[in-house]
Amino acid sequence: MTQIDIALKVLDHQILDRDGRRCGNVDDLEIEGGPGETARVTAILVGPGVWPQRAGWIGRIASFVGGGRRVRVPWGEVREVESHVILRKSAEELGLGRGDDRLRPWIEKIPGAHR
């Protein structure tokens, strides 16, 4: 059990899946619970679709360029918070890293792609 500053230690940090694969940054955090109740971080929000709420109109443009997807990763999927945020499952299982997965078949068509 540790005390952490959440924006400092979690927000905007790199996410790694259980195999150490980079699959996004923590673009925002979902919090449930209000005054007088226990407030908990319930999910990590990832993807260009989350950027408009972080950076106004530049965020909207960047989001559009990036494809506008957003993925919700329930906090229970987080194994540990170190320098990076490490997840219990693989990226595919959680719907992360889809941009890389969709592009990979095209890159693999070029000879030498596995060098």
Binding site: M1, T2, Q3, I4, D5, I6, A7, L8, V10, I31, G33, T38, A39, R40, V41, W75, G76, V78, V81
Partner: peptide, 16 residues
């Protein structure tokens, strides 16, 4: 508000 202090356990992150 600049940040939230939280308590991190194996399963949860509670805002303190």
């Amino acid at each position: 508000l600049y940040d939230l202090r939280g308590e991190l356990t194996a399963q949860t992150l509670t805002v303190t």
